[in-house]
Design a binder for these strands. Structure first.
Lengths: 194, 194, 194, 194
DNA sequence: GATGAATGAGCATTCATTCAT
DNA sequence: GATGAATGAATGCTCATTCAT
């Protein structure tokens, strides 16, 4: 098994362990036991426990970033609304495809390790910024309400996080299509009719 | 200083320490140092570290529960919309009034201590249920969109959590009124205009 | 309640607690709770935990010492054998009369507190010396085998201690008369018939 | 140094420390300092403090059990009396050979740790049962007095325990042969000649 | 005298990381 | 490269004793 494979193998098992136990409860021993390598081998491929975690988070962001396609208002074949819904679909698919990683992202590893907290923080900051920019674009296109895009991004991000949390961590059982539909509807009209 | 006072004093300092560091990083030493008492004194008033934390969470829920007033559609002096907004106002006020406790609620103490995790989980479950029931009432009154109230509750809770997180933990600086207004608007119309 | 009474009350409850839990597991809290006094009050009457224990042991020795009557070979009304049996009877009666104290004596409080260990050691040394002298007297009277009285004392003490241990601590259920008879027989003829 | 050796080394030092201080007063720090290893190394080889202690007790019982040879009345070369004396010799030799372990067995670790107490209790129960069965065999062979073998076992065990206690813990200085001879004599005829 | 709140020394155990083989 | 034995810092909790009221 070559270097890259061995590395990937450890990474994959670390992901499962982090997902199952959460960062703090995940012990190096659990990871190496799962990966079937010696404890020292882990440190041959990663600087420390946090480094693996960070790498997993970085991968997650990269995948999410790739899933996201900028809305093109000049596209004659697909309406803006369709493109937005399509984006939601891609994000939902991406997050549900690799539930282990999604669990990791959702388990705010708050405490004990400030640098680590910052890592997740930066992840959500990046996601927030992505949303913010999209909303700003949307306002220019007239498909997003006027108002503070920062707040829109925060509220939207929170709503989505919580829904994923319930689905992935708490076993709330909805189909991918349903999740997409509900999110889209919520973002379009809210819930109150007063 | 009598027993109740001393207890309250330790509790208050524990709240600050938990808010500042998070549950795991908060050491008993930090708490007693902050409170200016001996290590043993802490254990005179609380069974263990988790007990203080749980008490803080329970208090928080009690306050939140009291802040919440069931909408009364027969009230001639206050429209339903006003009453809803009033509720949001109360909740926002309650959470911003005691930011330390709010921080504690937002720092999902995930990991290491399963019972503790369950505590926070139950807190949010209770809040979720509260929202769910309110939405069901609202549907009967015609002021909440038709659809799955469970999902509405999850999305709403998430949106609110994230906004508070940004405000309380990340220094996003908005006035109480602004927060209330933005939340209300978001719940009324969402953000998309497609 | 006057001083002496209060002291006696605490002492009595301490005896029960020590008997029930053993020295180490007996907490000052258990004692004062049983006695129905405040923690500080305990220290008004005793220097420390060990002092109570020592006093109980001293009392026990005094009672045992009183129970023991020197054999009088000139007594025309009672044979030497009878007097010896009578002594065993008195000792057994004394130890079974106050089982709590007997438990305390039997729970070698070995460890943690060297001074305390010494206390019990001295108790058994004193009992051993008593036996030794009695055996020496007995040899002069021709009612004890020739040989090393020190060893006789040690073996006899051990045999009795273990029997009491089984009866008082482990629930071995024999009548007082039976215990006396078995001990006497054992001391008279041993168990082997080779 | 391989795993087994290192384990044996720690075990040996633990034995000395337990013997010297008794279970409770023996701190993990004492043990690792004596063994010249780091604190954590101890836990690499043993689950916890109690586990080492239990292992020492188990070893002791195994050795004692091996020392004990069932009396064979058909043996034409060795009389029953000789075989019994031989057994006593073996037991005495075993216990004096490893005085540290013998000290551990004699320091009833009563208190604080119920499971541990039970361990020693079971040890002596097992020894008592062994004696009881031997005495029953002996009665069948006509070399043990008629009577309650349970009591015989208890008295015999107590006598032996106390003698070893004096020899090993209190410095009573007798040769191995002398100890064997005195025990045998005591078991054969007791001490009284009334 | 009586109280009981306060004290703080003391200790077993965990686990990320290192490094000799 | 791989191993896994060794490390040791770090921390929650108990309980005998003191002393201000």
């Amino acid at each position: 098994m070559d270097k890259a494979e061995r590395r990937a193998q450890i990474l994959a098992h670390a992901r499962e362990v982090f997902a199952k136990r959460g960062y703090h409860a995940a012990k190096i021993d659990d990871i190496v036991a799962a990966a079937g390598v010696a404890r020292g081998t882990f440190y041959l491929y990663f600087d420390d426990k946090r480094a693996v975690f960070e790498e997993l988070v970085d991968h997650a962001f990269a995948r999410l970033d790739r899933a996201f396609v900028r809305v093109d208002p000049t596209d004659a074949t697909r309406t803006v609304a369709f493109q937005i819904q399509d984006n939601i679909e891609r994000i939902v698919a991406t997050l549900l495809e690799d539930r282990a990683t999604t669990k990791i992202l959702l388990s705010d590893a708050v405490g004990l390790d400030p640098d680590l907290d910052r890592k997740l923080l930066r992840f959500y900051e990046a996601v927030g910024t992505l949303l913010e920019e999209s909303f700003r674009d949307g306002q220019a296109l007239g498909v997003v309400a006027q108002g503070d895009v920062r707040i829109f991004a925060v509220l939207t991000l929170g709503a989505m996080k919580e829904l994923f949390y319930q689905v992935v961590m708490r076993g709330l059982d909805y189909s991918e299509e349903r999740i997409v539909a509900e999110m889209f509807a919520f973002l379009c009209h809210g819930v109150l009719r007063v």
